[in-house]
């Protein structure tokens, strides 16, 4: 591999853009295809299918064995609410290989002491989220169940097309949230993208157990649903 190709792979990852390295396994010839140029590549169909699945794999192009190395941006988890569940959740998310950040304007909650080694933004979501940057490789979790904090953040997550959106709250709390989001102009299909109650139904009780349920649900959407779509 040429160093310049490797440099493009690293640049694109840093900029959170997907990219595919196409390797001819018979000749060793390679090219890098950025997501934005995928549709004009001779192997567009194969490349686009790989980008959708996010998985590397073999492919036959012009009768020769090739390998497509898919690089999708690292998954980031943005949690609004520096609450007890987040304290258990953040280290687990990190261990599972996800970048995790916490946002909460309540400075008593959003203290670095409560979240060692995790970036904490003691700001309102409207200020913090544009800087953090939400995108299709971001999972978003709202855990304050305070509409003043959660609602603007959910609004941003829905607009940014986060691949997973979860919100804590009982069925009743969520029903009221659905009303507010509907009034704000979101469609039924938009709102259906919100996982609520949040997390897999494993009967979780403690904050750490709820953290496991949320993390498992995020992984499920990332690995299983995306693969099914491809």
């Amino acid at each position: 591999m040429k160093l310049e190709h490797l440099a493009i792979l690293n640049e694109e990852r840093a900029a959170r853009r997907a990219v595919v390295l196409v390797t001819d396994l018979e000749t060793g010839a390679q090219r890098v295809v950025r997501e934005a140029q995928a549709d004009s590549d001779p192997a567009a169909e194969l490349i686009e299918a790989r980008l959708r699945s996010g998985k590397s794999g073999p492919a036959e192009i012009e009768g020769r064995a090739h390998f497509l190395t898919v690089q999708t941006p690292p998954v980031k988890i943005v949690v609004v609410g520096a609450v007890h569940i987040s304290q258990a959740f953040a280290p687990m998310a990190k261990l599972a290989g996800f970048d995790c950040v916490i946002v909460d304007p309540r400075t008593a909650f959003a203290s670095p002491e409560r979240f060692p080694g995790v970036p904490v933004f003691a700001e309102w979501p409207d200020e913090a989220l544009p800087r953090i940057g939400l995108d299709g490789y971001t999972a978003f979790v709202a855990l304050t169940h305070d509409p003043k904090i959660d609602d603007p953040a959910l609004d941003a997550a829905l607009r940014a097309g986060c691949f997973y959106i979860g919100a804590l709250g009982s069925k009743k709390t969520h029903a009221r949230r659905v009303e507010r989001l509907t009034d704000a102009g979101f469609t039924e299909a938009d709102i259906a993208r919100i996982h609520a109650p949040v997390g897999l139904d494993i009967g979780a009780v403690s904050p750490a157990e709820i953290g496991v349920a949320i993390l498992a649900e995020i992984i499920g959407v990332l690995r299983r649903e995306r693969r099914r779509r491809a």
């Binding site: 490797l6 690293n10 990852r13 690089q71 690292p74 290989g97």
Partner: peptide
């Protein structure tokens, strides 16, 4: 992770 690995390679 793969991110670290390719950066290390570069």
């Amino acid at each position: 992770n793969d991110d670290d690995i390719l950066r290390q390679a570069e």
